[in-house]
Nucleic acid binder design. Sequence first.
DNA 1: TCGTGTAGTTTGATAGTCAAGGTAAAAAGT
DNA 2: ACTTTTTACCTTGACTATCAAACTACACGA
Lengths: 138, 138
Amino acid sequence: MSDTNKLTQLIVEFFEKLASWEHCIVRDKGLTLPQIHALEILGTHKALRMKELAERMGVTTGTLTVLADRLEKGGMIRRKPHKADRRSILVELTDQGQVLFKEHDELHNQLTRDITVGLSDTERKMFADILEKLNREF
Amino acid sequence: MSDTNKLTQLIVEFFEKLASWEHCIVRDKGLTLPQIHALEILGTHKALRMKELAERMGVTTGTLTVLADRLEKGGMIRRKPHKADRRSILVELTDQGQVLFKEHDELHNQLTRDITVGLSDTERKMFADILEKLNREF
DNA sequence: TCGTGTAGTTTGATAGTCAAGGTAAAAAGT
DNA sequence: ACTTTTTACCTTGACTATCAAACTACACGA
């Protein structure tokens, strides 16, 4: 097997494990993956237009409308008018959504610590550098 | 911001990009993420029992039943009886499913090549080593 | 053989998803 | 200024994913 094949398998395995972990975590909180995904994006971007959020999530605005309805009903997000463009609607986290986001973000950090526990400082730095390069190439 | 936070962000960004890529790829083929996920697992494991496949996918057997129905109707997989245990059912790829799996697998390899194009041989090897360690810790 | 556990299916309820169509507002063209 | 086109969001209809719970058939141990 080529080096590329092996590396691909390692990436796929890593990806699957991350996905599975996220899935279990959010299910315990009564949320779904798309819902927490929206909260994650809003948590790092303050207010976003529906259109922008939909694009970042990779879904249509129609899909986002119903998703946002549910999150709004659950008290996680808030819609507010866009001053400059009356077609647009801004979405932002409520206080409750902020709390949830921060909790979830801390879980991510804890996971990072857990899985990198066997790495040396050099390796951890190397890993960060490599990820930065990969993200640029995407 | 701590090193852990930064590393977490890099991992999340990498994960999101992988998910988005996979999403776009399978949509072009008229498949869904869970469907291609099942094909990927079956592609590397020959025949699996429904129960085993469900566990690897992280879904209940009820969910897998309807998923398998659709894949079977689409000619991607085949159910066949389990010789030793008549409660169990084995699932395996059809020839058509095999072709699809190999095509998709090759796309993964191509993606690996594309995103690691900026890495040196040393970095690529280091990346593989680190991923192996992380996958073990999971 | 009888009770308990297991594999898979079915069903009902809830979510996610898209495409297509609708409405209102902005932007562009004339 | 007026018309046309584009954009942003919502709605609807159809399909898929998902789980929990109930159900069937089989296995396995006491």
